[in-house]
Design a protein around this nucleic acid. Structure first.
Lengths: 157, 157
DNA sequence: GCCAGATACTTAACATGTTAAGTTTATAGA
DNA sequence: TCTATAAACTTAACATGTTAAGTATCTGGC
């Protein structure tokens, strides 16, 4: 309103051109479609990520699971006892190094995963149709590039 | 290991091709660079979004602020009293409709915004160099498309 | 073998995300 | 005007995000 003309008077690009913000917006827009579906199965977004990671990659220690799910080990320490008491995962100490906790998915957990996966894929297919298969591929490539562009993403260590 | 060959035996595309997951990964990778910077100024990621939104768009009611910042009104109800007691924002009731709370940034808040904005832009410029200006532009376009592809993003209502 | 430092995880404290219920104010219709 | 409904916000409860501190275990050097 009372800005002269020197850019926007803000010394900063507009909020809509904040990459973290747009990534958040895009993610929230997508999750709006998935959340009710997960909720119907009694799963939080984070619990679903854990089941999915374990179903795909097998048993893992806490740090590896956290990296794969993008969930902090401290959060996992709180979540995993619940998932375990519900019989969806198991935890055991590593034989050779007692510091490590090895987490794995149970048969019950895998059965749940299969059910949820089926419906999730349908939602995903719908999203892919709307965005376009080619654009989606490009989007993945650019996201990968942005991830790799980070200073030290500590992929392995 | 013991999978036959039917895809990956998972009835689901790999985790790395989950769009919400890659959006989260990319966002986390970027925020790793911004968070220490914000922290240095005593701002949480969410507090910074609020200041930025108010600096850019002027005063707003809670719902509009929540939409712009992607922060739930319930979370804002908890955050805003803190920002207000620190003298960074102000709240007042709408004259014509007492249900609305109008939030605005103070001079002190704006001064803080300007300081943080300056450094943020430098970090952002570094990221833009690494990703590439052209790719970044394409990335924004695809993110916009993904956001618009959502069923009903309730932009206005 | 012993000890300092590193590693993996847990716990605690506080902020925020998420949902549901509650409160206040406004609006529309009888 | 009165009342039912809706809208905007708040509060509460619980899960998760985030950081720092704490515990147990391991590793390497003496």
């Amino acid at each position: 309103m009372s800005e002269k003309k020197k850019g926007n008077g803000l010394a900063m690009r507009p909020f809509a051109r904040s990459l973290p913000m747009q990534l958040l917006r895009a993610r929230e827009a997508l999750m709006q479609e998935f959340r009710p579906h997960l909720r119907k199965h009694g799963l939080s977004e984070q619990q679903w990520r854990v089941l999915r990671a374990l179903a795909e990659a097998g048993s893992m220690d806490i740090n590896a699971l956290g990296e794969m799910c993008q969930i902090h080990p401290a959060s996992l320490s709180r979540m995993l006892p619940n998932l375990e008491s519900e019989g969806r995962i198991e935890r055991r100490n590593d034989r050779d190094d007692q510091r490590y906790i090895i987490v794995s998915i149970t048969a019950k957990g895998r059965a749940l995963f299969q059910r949820v996966a089926k419906e999730s894929e349908q939602i995903y297919a719908s999203i892919e149709r709307r965005i376009g298969s080619s654009e989606l591929k490009t989007l993945y490539e650019l996201l990968d590039k942005a991830i790799r562009a980070a200073p030290e993403n500590a992929q392995e260590k």
